[in-house]
Write a protein that binds this DNA or RNA. Structure first.
Lengths: 207, 207, 207, 207
DNA sequence: AATGAATGAGGCTTCATTCAT
DNA sequence: CATGAATGAAGCCTCATTCAT
């Protein structure tokens, strides 16, 4: 039986083989993240993933024990990538500026790269426990980026909110659903829509 | 050929039989709306629907010509019910009061009755044309409730928005996703969450 | 249980009711013969038959115990009708003239009225015994029309054949398949095709 | 995605694997041709085909994307085989001799090897376009064998016909239906029947 | 006599999963 | 490592048949 080890991080990249394996896994996850992000869990078959990778379906099972596992790992990859891009935003400027930039970037990524990311978090309803935990943790890490800024703004008096939690939920919901209505727009109109969305969402913190 | 007639509205409930048929269809639609609302299109099989109704899959085809059609009709039922309840809200008070009430009621319905309605709007990327039209129209009718109020408020100077469209999208997204995070709360906490959500969302129109 | 009696002929048309029943049965058989003759056994559902009669599927079972039985009876009706029309041809003229007229009429009926009759004799391969017998007998009766003329012509020296049986088989095969290639033609071309077919087939008897 | 490639011809039997695949496909097609030839399209289920091959239904989909495609490919295999055998007949002798030999061989094949090929040409009223084209082409190639000879005979004055097309249709119809009435005969009687059939059909060209 | 409703078997198709090589 | 092949469960849909009314 093929050993299904660390799917995302590699603790002991001792040998050359290990490193190669890691690289291969990343390739797979990148492609899988793309596909799942585009179409959602149900609409992507392992054949789709395999074909885009130009390998056979069977090979995927050498690296991942099941579709669920592959998908979860892909979500992690996707989430890490996403979060990483958000973390690279410049840390200077007022809280208002920084939050707006964060929102803007988040929506841009959602609309351009992962239009169906929303689906991944809704279907199928119940992940098996270990995977649910991993997804939850991911979401938390991501949330904290926003939470940090909002709290900072509230503390400094720059923002005014009824409830930080509620604001975060609304932010998240609106940003994640954006691809659903921005997706059909042309390039120009889409850019403006994202701008307006960012402006509108800033009003949630009183800006 | 089994008559797949008016699935939602009944133009000619002439005979007793017709009425009975109508009632049966409503039963089915209610159950279907529940299931699809809970799990989304792909994750619900016709067997699931049939089983919950305690009939066989085949019977469903006596009333609906396909899964797509059943699901669309279920969505229509759900949407009509939902919209009807919103339309019954009192029409007096300031725009602010009325919008807040509308939001509050919408979220209450979402959280209590259709906790996963969101899924219904995400699922099969592309409905066949006739069904897409029906869903779009439904959504439009529902949207107009909110749009009317927002525009009224903007016209009267009571509201301030960057873009009416964008505000509506954010409202919708936030309200629809609410069950995802309110659902787990206890009765009391949930009530407060809904209140806070309504307050928070009012800030989208500058209130 | 409803009594499934004489499907085609009525032995005891004692009461008014009996006669009405007989008429209804004929209606059904006429329609069924049309449909089966057009599309073949498999491609016709009882719903199709019922719909064209403007009754429900269930009603058919009041008159016929199964699709097989209905289809066989329909074939009989079709065959009787067909044979009757051939028997009405004028009995004067030379054998050659009469055979040619017979062929011509047969093909005309095949092409215009029962384009898929061929299918009925091939699919599904094995009728249950009683029905097979009935169909065989029908075919026999029909065959004898041609056999009689051919033998007469041979006896009178007007025709020359290697084997009467073989000639009959070829005649039948060619006439029955005609709709397959004549069917697509326009009215005018079709008429000429039928004429040429009759001429060509006459050469099978040396004419 | 399982590769549904060249189903009949194999352009690049590069590796051993490819050849094995080709062999498997041929196995399937042979079996399918038998079954479809025996019972016709509708009366054969994929389960039937799979069972006769001692595999599961699903496996067939590894090689063919649909029942239609499988059936068309089977017809092609059958047709190619058939035509190839006819093309191997010696090309010397008078046109009369050659046409008679062709007819004789065709009927022999029909009776012995493809007793119910006829059904394949009757069944689903309408093939999807691409498949219809393939079948038409096959039929054309086969037809040309006969047409060539008939035209040659007509040109040389050896044959006399009303219409080449019509003669070809009659030839075809008679030869294809032959198994239906020759099939039941014993070996000896059958041989004579085939001889008589060939003689009789020659009279269609005035011989 | 006739209907509306329901059933259940069977058909086609997809797809996650397994496995020998 | 990777592949090609095969499997089996599950899904959608059709339709002959039954039955209470």
């Amino acid at each position: 039986m093929s050993a299904h080890q660390q799917t995302v991080d590699e603790k002991t990249p001792s040998s050359r083989v290990q490193r190669k394996r890691g690289r291969r896994i990343q390739e797979i996850l990148t492609v899988a993240a793309e596909l799942f992000g585009e179409r959602g869990y149900d609409a992507v078959s392992l054949d789709d993933v395999a074909e885009r990778l130009d390998v056979t379906k069977g090979s995927l099972y050498y690296y991942f024990p099941s579709k669920d596992e592959l998908c979860t790992a892909a979500i992690e990859t996707l989430g890490n990538d996403w979060t990483a891009r958000l973390e690279q935003l410049p840390a200077d400027g007022t809280v208002t500026e920084r939050l707006r930039a964060l929102i803007h970037e988040h929506v841009t990524i959602a609309v351009n790269d992962y239009p169906a990311a929303l689906r991944l978090f809704l279907v199928p309803r119940e992940w098996p426990e270990p995977q649910r935990a991993r997804i939850k943790e991911l979401r938390l890490r991501h949330d904290n980026l926003f939470r940090g800024l909002v709290e900072e703004g509230v503390a400094s008096g720059e923002f005014k909110v009824t409830s930080v939690d509620t604001v975060l939920q609304c932010l998240h919901a609106s940003m994640t659903q954006a691809p659903l209505w921005c997706g059909e727009l042309g390039v120009r109109a889409r850019k403006r829509a994202v701008d307006e969305l960012a402006d509108t969402l800033m009003s949630l913190v009183g800006r």
